[in-house]
Design a binder for these strands. Sequence first.
RNA 1: GGCGAUGUAGCUCAGAUGGUUAGAGCAUACGGCUCAUAUCCGUAGUGUCCGGGGUUCAAUUCCCUGCAUCGCCA
Length: 652
Amino acid sequence: MTTYITTPIYYVNAQPHLGHAYTTIVADVYSRFCRLCGDDVRFQTGTDEHGDKIAEAAIKEQVSPKEYVDRISALYRESWPQLHIIPDNFIRTTDAVHIETVQRILQQVYDQGDIYFGEYTGLYCKGCERFLTEKELVDGNCPDHQRPPEAITEQNYFFRMSKYQQQLIDHIHAHPDFITPERYKNEVLSFLSEPLEDLCISRPTSRLTWGIALPFDQNFVTYVWFDALINYLTGIGYPEGESFLKYWAVAEHVIAKDILKPHAIYWPTMLLAMGLPLFQRLHVHGYWNVGEIKMSKSIGNVVRPAELVTEYGVDTVRYFLLREMSFGLDASFSSEAIVMRKNSDLANDLGNLFSRSMAMLEKYTDSQVPIPGATEEPDMILQETAVQMLSLYRENMGRFQFHRALQSVWDLISHANKYIVVSEPWVLAKEPAQQKRLHTVLYNLVETLRLLTLVLRPVMPETAQKMAAGLGLDGNDPRISNFSQGAQWGLSSAGTSLQAIESLFPRMDKPEKSGAAQAVTGASAKKNSPKKEKKKVADAEVGVIEFEQFQQIDLRVAEVVHAERIEKSDRLLKLTVKAPDTRTIVAGIAEYYTPEELLGRLVLIVANLKPVELMGVQSQGMVLAAKTKVEGKKRLVLTTVSGVVTAGSKVA
RNA sequence: GGCGAUGUAGCUCAGAUGGUUAGAGCAUACGGCUCAUAUCCGUAGUGUCCGGGGUUCAAUUCCCUGCAUCGCCA
């Protein structure tokens, strides 16, 4: 079997965050899983480096676009090894080979008549020097310049996407796995039920030069998506070469839901126009929220993968991300959740199973794998559970149902822990007559640990390596590195020497408390366990918050740059504030303040409040005001700072 | 406004083409063990399976409708 798995190429206008890391870890785990199954695997990621946003960012930093993209692209490339992600190829859209191929494809599609010159009318903002989409507008205005964009007409090149619409619909119906999970397939089909418009694939060089020149008209550069998607081909040597023929036939893409349309509509129609077969599968996943809140730069809650690795360890991060998210749906990230997973799944269940088994082997067989005796009923059940796990694991990994695959692995871990309790090796060890039985039980534990090492390898390579070392196996031993050879019961060899290793996963303290206040442990150790003690303290102090909780509130000074009444509301004002990013806040102060008197004022805001929609306007924060009474009437008085400070200053 | 998804235990989520006592993990309470990382094992709960109506001998499951949340489209 052959496998070609890709992530999107990441746009270099921002640094890698949790979402990028998740997509790339998924692709890495899948590629490792396929290798485990003996496949010839090619795994590609990279960076997308053209377009106006990049050009703007470079200007802002006063460097050339090329210098800028080199720097950010390197950040991506360097962050993957920290997560034990090993791509076979890292492609950049500024690579000469890529540029050449994109131009060749454009020429071909142009020559066959699927690209034509036409007119485009769009909403152009002079301030931004670019077209805005309807979605970006706030009340019909450019969000950055507070004025309506102009409808202007520009001549451009268009790709005849509409020509391939029906072919694409037919393909999706004929290949149920083409877009998965199903909800995204439905979304695409629903979008395709309306006539497609042709895709504008050029930008005039008068507006943008940072792009790939159209080979047939030097006055234009290529629209970023038409450029970027082609990376999946250039990265494997299209149009020539063995790699291309071998890998393109089995291509699978992993993406997040925000780029569904380019991948499920632009890309297949482009391929149809090029006369190429379509990719095999498109795997679409959801978003990681932070707690309940969407991760975003303006809220300032962006999670950096490198920090997680430092805090929790790389394998914990990989495990958590795959276990916690149902592939396709959104999931929620929090330090509480990751600590919980680490403590209960990794330390208590897996780590402790490994540790207790190894300890008994050391004590009872001098760390030698014993020779098993006759199989009894509990042994049979353990074996059956293991075999069942192997088949569920393989099936679910192949279907990108990582959380289910891991669930079945943990079913075995949990069963093995029960097996120990039922078998009571420590009792057997006391009776010489039971030695055969003891050896059987211990052998079965070794065998279970070996199978766990095998299946955990794609997800937690470092841990699997440690486990292998503990089991006295070489990392390349096919019994733990090859699924078809290793995934069966009974392959551990008696006589193998086991090695003592450190704990796989030390337990972590819960994030909310450090644990100083437990000196007062009472008589009965169990009843006054630290955990309960903490709980009681917390209950007694309802209403008091921890310093850490306070720190989570992002208070800032904001300058009011615009204010207006919200129609149909007596109480609400819509404020535009600088803090220092521009954001819209809806405040219920219209009864006490006029828009005019607010202009230029410095107010205090909560900057990381979950955004809400009030009277159809999204509010990204909250303005602080004192509640008071003047002559018996309720009154709100805005808070402010006593001196002049810059907008955006933190308040603490 | 159109289309679609989701709504199940305190929390996160499984689940059945309709059929006895609706499940798992976490959290909680109690008990057991001592090989183990204060770990592990067992027992115990709580559910108007979103509301309302319909089909049926039987609906949490199918149909209709309402509400809530989310997504896509306009």
